[in-house]
Computed example of a mutant assay.
Amino acid sequence: MAPTLAQLRAVDALARTGQFSRAAREIGVSQPTVSAQVQAFESASPFRIFHRDGHSIRVAPEAESLVAKIRIALACLDEIERDMRGEGGAAARRLSLGFSAHRLIMPILSAFVRRHGEIRVVTRGGPSAELIEAVLKGDLDLAAISRPAPDPRLVCFELARCRIVVYGQKGHAALASGAIRIADLDGQKMVLWNRLSGTRSLLDRLAEAAGIVLDPVMEVATLDVAYAAAAVGIGLAIAVEGEVEADEHIDVAVLEDAGSDIGHYLVTLPEYVRHAAVAAFLALAAEGVVGPAPARF
């Protein structure tokens, strides 16, 4: 039996909130109604939709793709309803955008906000692998991520192809020439992104291929912390070219090894490409509005 719209809304609300009571408040029905709608949907499904552990409810791994499609379908339905009410354009629309390198996405994001001020943009920073999973689950409409090659599970629009740079405290001997090789990092103290980062994953692969062991004395999750740690001499840090520039506190050197470049991609699910807000963002990206924003730490 085909699922009803009420069932889809109940499943989506429960997936996002993790509680029947919160899901009920969000969609404006009673808690027993949400429970009945979810139960009816689960009964018709060939696999488990939710895992329940006491008061904690989460989407089962095998249902993540299905729940993402439900979220997309409901977003498209909301667009249809707005158009049918004559609101047209992008009125009251929303775009959820994740990014791993804020300086690289900021020029296009600022251009998008100027051109489409009627679309409410909700942003989220994080490492590339984490953002990809959020897109696959439908938690994000679109993400700007860094990785060596496109992800075959997603539609990938390449914004730029960038080199990796290594930076550290002003006057660091390893950075004096403005160029560095992966072998030069052998024995160096490092300030590295966590392992969900695309640039960290690439550096780890290059180090393994070169037969060296990196020495991360500190792992970070934000660029400002990485910069501050490198600037005071805790260790050498890495970034996508354009994220950091040499200044009175740090020197920067380009990593010259073959295969050390990385792509910066906008990624979304195939089902979302024609969604109005996503399509508008991708269209602006296609115009070539991209480049590093001014650094501020």
Rank of each mutant, 00 (worst) to 15 (best):
Ala285Thr: 03
Asp151Gln: 09
Ala63Val: 02
Tyr227Gly: 00
Asp204Asn: 14
Gln188His: 09
Ala73Lys: 07
His275Tyr: 15
Thr123Gln: 09
Leu202Lys: 10
Ile212Gly: 01
Cys156Lys: 07
His102Leu: 02
Ala111Glu: 08
Ala36Ser: 13
Leu97His: 03
Ala10Asp: 03
Phe41Arg: 00
Asn194Pro: 04
Glu130Asn: 13
Ala13Val: 06
Ala228Val: 06
Ala173Ile: 10
Ala68Cys: 07
Val122Asn: 11
Leu284Thr: 03
Val59Gly: 01
Ile250Gly: 00
Ala229Gly: 07
Val122Phe: 12
Val121Lys: 05
Glu158Cys: 14
Ala92Trp: 09
Ile145Phe: 02
Phe112Ser: 04
Ala91Glu: 10
Ala2Gly: 07
Leu97Met: 02
Arg58Thr: 14
Arg181Lys: 13
Arg161Trp: 02
Glu271Ile: 10
Asp204Tyr: 01
Asp261Cys: 12
Leu192Phe: 02
Arg85Cys: 08
Gln7Thr: 08
Leu266Gly: 05
Ile49Met: 07
Asp184Pro: 05
Pro270Asp: 11
Ile250Lys: 03
Asp53Gln: 12
Gly28Val: 03
Cys156Tyr: 05
Arg115Leu: 11
Ala173Arg: 13
Val155Ala: 11
Glu256Lys: 12
Gln39Met: 10
Thr4Val: 02
Ala6Pro: 03
Val38Ile: 08
Arg195Leu: 10
Ala280His: 06
Leu206Pro: 02
Leu8Asn: 01
Arg93Leu: 12
Val254Asn: 03
Val225Pro: 01
Gly211Cys: 13
Glu271His: 08
Ile108Trp: 09
Tyr167Pro: 00
Gly187Arg: 11
Ile180Lys: 00
Leu223Pro: 11
His172Glu: 08
Val34Met: 02
Val191Glu: 07
Pro294Trp: 00
Ala144Ile: 03
Ser110Gly: 09
Gly125Arg: 01
Val34Tyr: 00
Ala293Arg: 00
Ala36Met: 13
Asp186Met: 08
Lys137Ala: 15
His172Trp: 05
Leu266Ser: 04
Ala15Val: 10
Arg120Pro: 00
Lys137Phe: 04
Arg115Val: 09
Arg161Cys: 11
Ala286Cys: 07
Val252Ser: 04
Phe20Gln: 08
Val121Ile: 13
Gly171Thr: 06
Val113Ile: 15
Gln37Lys: 07
